[in-house]
Amino acid sequence: MTVNVRDVLPRDAIPSVDNPAFGDAYDWSPDDEVIAVTFADPPRAYPVRFLQFHEIVNDAVGGATDASKKGSTDESGADPIAVTWCPLCGSGIVYDRTHAGRTLEFGVSGKLADDDLVMYDRETGSEWKQSTGECIAGAFEGDSLVVRPAALLSVREFRESFPDGVVLRPPGGESEAASPDDEPVPIDYDASPYEEYASGEGFGLAAHRGTNGRREWGRTDDLDPKTVVLGVEVDDDALGFPVPRVRAAGGVVRTTVGDRDVVVFATDEGEAHAYADPGYDFAVTDTGVTADGTTWGPATGVAADARRLERLPTRRLYAFAWRDDHGPDAFYRAD
């Protein structure tokens, strides 16, 4: 599909986090959302409150299993990942930083592709569209990054489900996202520069900045442009699961994407989570999701008897961004 790329800011005006530090404390609301990387040892949480000012965290974690990764560790034995967030697209995706035998470090290019973050790697200067992981310019053009399993959880859910987990500490510094213009200023993590955009009807950069050139949605069905979608891709097949449609189906959807049997749960927090379908007859009851004689946590895939579902690599993003990448028919429908 055609990608519209434009320059918006100077390179690194929004600073990536390249030396992340973690701890137990989080001084903001327990309802705040985090991107949770639960295959790390210990599990790690990256607050969206911080990511909206940084957009990329270059990290290296331990504890990956064969089921959770398809890349390779670096020379130190760590597992290099990039935790990425585009505030305009509501897209939270974790990528493997190991590509073509090299460990890449990503920064914010200052460009947008269809209103989505364009990352660049500091090794070759190649540019990558965040929502797809595809290299759109440079030495790796046409290549794609490997998606890793991750979940969008509240701080409360993360702490309850992973009591040994750690949280990214406030990175600090300056960011254009903290500024009323294009000049970076010191970050105030109490601020929420995209709060009005997230709750408004418009979408894309023009809607965020309140300028001309706003995009039209044009759909007449039940999807708004900023409906939260969980995208599952298997080989060349892609299917986006809008949270309202999963909820309308009873909160559980079982289907096939490519050759993979998938089960998707919608939560009361407005998110969706996808797992490899073990073949159980899941049902949503007053006590939670039940199947095979026990209760399961839809946000974690963990059963009361300690069994654990295999979380699939997914992309969490707004409906307009999924449509930009995959077209108008790549959405799950119950019929």
Rank of each mutant, 00 (worst) to 15 (best):
A248G: 09
A248K: 10
A248P: 06
G250C: 10
G251W: 06
G251K: 10
G251C: 13
G251Y: 07
G251F: 08
V252D: 01
V252H: 02
V252T: 06
V253F: 08
V253L: 10
R254L: 06
R254V: 05
R254N: 13
R254K: 14
T255C: 13
V257M: 07
V257R: 07
V257C: 08
G258H: 04
D261R: 14
V262T: 05
V262S: 01
V263L: 07
V263P: 00
V263I: 11
V264C: 09
F265Q: 02
T267R: 09
D268E: 15
E269W: 08
E269S: 13
A272D: 08
H273Y: 15
Y275W: 07
D277Q: 11
G279D: 13
Y280W: 15
Y280P: 11
Y280E: 15
F282K: 06
F282H: 02
F282I: 00
V284D: 03
V284T: 13
T285I: 12
T287V: 15
T287D: 15
G288S: 00
V289F: 13
V289M: 12
T290W: 00
A291D: 00
D292N: 14
D292P: 02
D292Y: 11
D292R: 09
G293E: 07
T294L: 03
T295Y: 08
G297M: 05
G297C: 07
G297Q: 07
G297Y: 04
P298D: 02
P298A: 10
A299T: 04
A299K: 06
A299E: 02
T300C: 06
T300E: 03
G301M: 00
G301H: 02
G301Q: 03
A303R: 02
A303P: 10
A303S: 14
A304S: 13
A306E: 15
A306C: 12
L309G: 02
E310F: 06
E310L: 14
E310R: 12
E310K: 13
L312I: 08
L312M: 13
P313W: 11
P313Y: 11
T314G: 03
R315L: 04
R315T: 05
R315K: 12
L317D: 01
L317R: 00
Y318N: 05
A319F: 02
A319E: 00
A319N: 04
A319Q: 01
F320C: 05
F320H: 05
F320P: 06
A321C: 14
W322Q: 01
R323C: 09
R323T: 10
D324W: 06
G327W: 01
P328G: 13
P328C: 11
D329S: 15
